[in-house]
Amino acid sequence: MNISEYKGVYVFVEQREGEIQKVSLELLGKARELADKLNEKVTAVVLGYDIKDDLNELIYYGADEVLYTDDELLKVYMTEPYTKVLSEVISANKPEIVLIGATAIGRDLAPRVSARIYTGLTADCTSLDIDEENKNLLMTRPAFGGNIMATIVCPDHRPQMSTVRPGVMTICEKDESRIGDIKEFKVELSEKDVNVEILEVVKEEKERINIEEADVLVSGGRGIGQPDNFKMLKELADLLKGQVSASRAVVDAGWIDRDHQVGQTGKTVRPGLYIACGISGAIQHLAGMEESEFIVAINKDPGAPIFEVADVGIVGDVNKVVPLLIEELKMSSVKEEKAQK
């Protein structure tokens, strides 16, 4: 393998029902930065069906060119057709770097592609940079439950592939004056490429929970004692215009839906305010929330690790403190209203 032949930063753009996923725009932002350091181009790769309309958006968000493959068999994600197309895109274009969102789609597709083309893949990266010495991609990811960080390189194989956690990279400001090429990449797909038959596609119409986008999170752990006490946390979250999230322990116990889970196996969040209620702070949990701007922790156990990352820690029974906190907040907002009058 002559690695110097490999040029350019490619982003796999994930679409679901034609809608470009936010993580892909985040990746374009990061790809732009990496490509500028390498003095190379950013290419967005889009697979889907009837997707030609919005492709300029990808240019506005940082891509220099867009490659798309439009085929009915790519309408809904299936491992083999997607693997075939992405592997062919890589073989034909020889990118230096390929970035894929670490979603339930990306984490199925990326390993399959990396095994097919025999290159390295680093999972769930939270930081990417270029080594100034040799221009290799430095891929940093949490390991061992989140508190060891490891920087991984892929020195002798190309492309250097990485999946990246949603919510970690920053989207470029949209610039509608940017221009770039939009090109079709043709791949022959047939029913033979479909080895898993989709019988039913079910969208779960739950209340849309996206704790990654909330600016305030009120998060509950075992210390709240019982599932019913999430109502109290919800009331607090509503007062602060935030959402409720949770630790793995209570998700595993079935107290609340998995969409709410913060941590290494859940979601990485960085809200302006994170209130940890009855959460002891296993390292997996801390890994998912310690970048929050301001952290309040309420916990009975003065030795709980959550206090190590909290800006304000209250040692006490969360079921007593939170109702009083709700009262205080209501009172202070009433005072303010009066003052404004």
Partner: peptide
């Protein structure tokens, strides 16, 4: 294909104030 270049623990952020 991948090698670990280095591993490190994230420096724990300084704890804020704890009130009993």
């Amino acid at each position: 294909p991948t090698k670990v270049k280095k591993s490190f623990t994230k420096g724990a952020k300084a704890a804020g104030k704890k009130f009993e």
